[in-house]
Design a protein around this nucleic acid. Sequence first.
DNA 1: TACCAGGTCCTCG
DNA 2: CGAGGACATGGT
Length: 223
Amino acid sequence: MELLKIYKNLYNYFGPQGWWPLVAFRAEPSAPRGKPFFNCDHQFEICVGAILTQNTAWKNVEKAIANLVKANLLTPGALLRCGTKKLQTCLYPAGYFRQKTKKLKIFSKFLLENYNGDLRKFFNSQVSIVRCQLLELWGIGPETADSMILYAGGKPTFVIDAYTRQLCECFGLRFKTYDEYKKFFVHQLPRRAKLYNQYHALIIAWGKLYSKDKKAALKILLL
DNA sequence: TACCAGGTCCTCG
DNA sequence: CGAGGACATGGT
């Protein structure tokens, strides 16, 4: 299973994937040197999206984020101050709305208390520390933490999700833990955020196809 | 009508 | 540890 070759096959088929699908703020089209440009607001939206999309279709997450925007709640301070009932109503379409309300509150509180709500400051800390801090928070597991670090922080951390495991499974590969999957990928790929970002996004595109048309999806891998 | 979607936490053996 | 269940809505 040659990961770079698979990457190329996926890239050739699906083409370059967009940056994290922002709802409230569009990413700047004229980013310098192809680097994604985002500010604190983008970063926070990405983190919120990462939590809301846990085991949930992105379509439903979009509705919830749109509600947050309309209610002017897309900052750590506003989320923390917002009443639980009101926040639950906003998050309702994303499912697990009681749990997710709690998760967003806890995450916002953490950011405010430790980084004054400044996402840039947070992600500029050492990656291993950022990851540990995220994992200590209730409601944030390894995938959500890595998504935040990669997509909001722009740091090279490979994200493993259900589709990634599914792809490995196609090659008869199965590991026990999240970290074992991660090692398998990072040991074989150049350590670059851009690559990790595209690769993960491509795997998602592939996974969605796979769920509809296994044959077509398998064919792409084996080109 | 069931089953699943870019997981995580809790409980029980 | 590891399996099994709970959490919840919306699309197919």
